[in-house]
Write a protein that binds this DNA or RNA. Structure first.
Lengths: 312, 312
DNA sequence: TTGTATGCGTTATCAA
DNA sequence: TTGATAACGCATACAA
């Protein structure tokens, strides 16, 4: 490279890293050489010198029934990261402890510059572990049960979503709207439930038609049956999975996540702006990594995808 | 490290890479030091010296309707790779040309040791590009339209799957079984169709009830309507997407891929052994990477997930 | 504005 | 069986 352009290695490095310091003519000559020789910086060598890998590590998730949105988030993350000059490194882990162990190992070997945590929950040991060590990370999901700004995060406003869904049903004339949720204690589940009850409270309606499930369609269906017996005429659900079960019982149901299943069965559902969320995660992480001042968190609003007008 | 264990750096390296060459006592001392200091080899430094990154690169896919199986394959790949000491690096690309450009760039920067290609098709330029340069790669998907062993691959036997599906319907008493496929020329689609017609031929039945679609549920539904008009009493479909459409027309339908949507709507479907396929991809790649003789390809059989007995 | 020297952490080679 | 040395490619400090 340097020989080809008739300069020193240092000049080449300068052209690439601080172009303004090199004379125009020399710069052009080097740039031509870069082109001609198809030169690319070696990530490994650069990492050895700078200590930065330009790697972002993320755990790849799977769920039992496959009705999740992680794949779309991951795609967005990969794309956004690439735009900022980062690549995404994948790992798997069965639980929080295993994930911490893997992160620890990754840190020693590939030295990712940052981590993206997903599926945050109350008392999340992963966030605590990373924060303790002052490692750069962002979570897709709020620090449930912890102060709002203990670490940077991006999340989707579940409450705003279910509130909009409830209003949608109210506007169609429904007055006895139930909620099929998860067992309490799940930050995400409680948040989604809060939006529903807020909407009802806003119209002076009772928010008593609630039932908890394990998130399966089977329990969703059972819960829906009971709520309908208790007078519910429409249901807001914490997920598409339980909504799918509820849909067997009653037509006016709103799900959450807008999974392919929702589209397939004509289920109205709340769609998370996943590409946007992923992009914001990368933003937060990269500004942190380049010591730029960054906002501490981002809360996005889901949108209601209406697939069928409520009947009454 | 070396100082702590009172040996040279080289001895440490030997303990880690060729333990048999080091005296038992020294080895133990070094191992203790490794433990005490929480030592981990730096991937970057090792890569600089050896030229191997222990990275496998894969493109992350998305489809329009989200009814794909790639996420499960990717999870399996990440897990299997980790077991063999490799990590998965993700990238995105809009088309084959962009993918080749990205692979080229990756090669210069992160220098992945191997690539996993998915969604292979006739005249795939990616496989040709990699093969030309003698780069280690394996594809999940056969080299359609090329000699069987131009490169290592893992695939699922679509024909065997649709043949089993057709037999399933035949056994229930159906005699006029149609096939809803993709436009011809798609290797995967043609293969799946071949299994259906083979099963019918085996019973001396006519394989005339075929229609092509673009893979959407809408076209699946339209095709099903027409085939039913032409006398079909049951349908084998090239994908869950078209099967979903067909299901609106007639109950005895078999899909392909066993996506969450199939489970949601009670659609009988063919399930690909994706974890197994991913594991075999890693096997083929790692044996190639360590110059072990490897089988050239692996063909796996999908299994029929019966969700509803055919009526006859 | 450009060039020289150095070291990041490994491992291969070779000598002891 | 162990140790010394060199080199991978880059970026920084410093000298010219």
């Amino acid at each position: 490279m340097a020989r080809y352009a008739n300069v020193s290695r240092q000049t080449v490095s300068n052209v690439l890293n601080s172009p303004e310091v090199v004379k125009e003519e020399t710069r052009q000559r080097v740039l031509d050489a870069v082109e001609a020789l198809g030169y690319r910086v070696s990530a490994a060598a650069r990492q050895m010198r700078t200590g930065r890998s330009r790697l972002l590590a993320v755990r790849i998730e799977t769920t039992q029934d496959g009705m999740n949105v992680f794949d779309r988030f991951l795609h967005g993350l990969t794309e956004s990261a690439a735009r900022s000059g980062y690549r995404v490194l994948l790992y798997t882990a069965a639980d929080d402890r295993a994930e911490i162990a893997t992160i620890d190992q990754l840190l020693g070997e590939f030295e990712p510059d940052g981590f993206v945590l997903t599926s945050t929950h109350h008392g999340d040991p992963r966030a605590a572990w990373l924060a303790e060590r002052a490692l750069p990370f962002v979570s897709f999901g709020r620090p449930w049960g912890a102060p709002e700004d203990v670490h940077p995060w991006v999340d989707v406003d579940g409450a705003a979503g279910t509130e909009a869904a409830t209003h949608h049903l109210l506007d169609a004339g429904h007055r006895r709207i139930g909620f099929v949720g998860w067992e309490p204690g799940s930050g995400v589940g409680d948040d989604r439930r809060a939006g529903w009850s807020r909407a009802l409270a806003g119209r002076g309606l009772d928010a008593g038609l609630v039932l908890e499930t394990d998130g399966s369609s089977a329990q969703g269906q059972a819960a829906a049956r009971e709520l309908v017996e208790r007078g519910a005429t429409a249901l807001v659900c914490v997920s598409d999975s339980v909504a799918l079960g509820a849909l067997q019982v009653i037509p006016d149901v709103v799900g959450f996540d807008d999974t392919p299943v929702a589209a397939a069965v004509g289920l109205t559902s709340l769609s998370q702006p996943l590409t946007e969320a992923a992009a914001r995660c990368v933003d937060l992480l990269t500004s942190r990594l380049s010591d730029r001042p960054a906002v501490s968190h981002v809360l996005l609003t889901p949108s209601l995808v209406i697939r069928k007008e409520p009947r009454s």
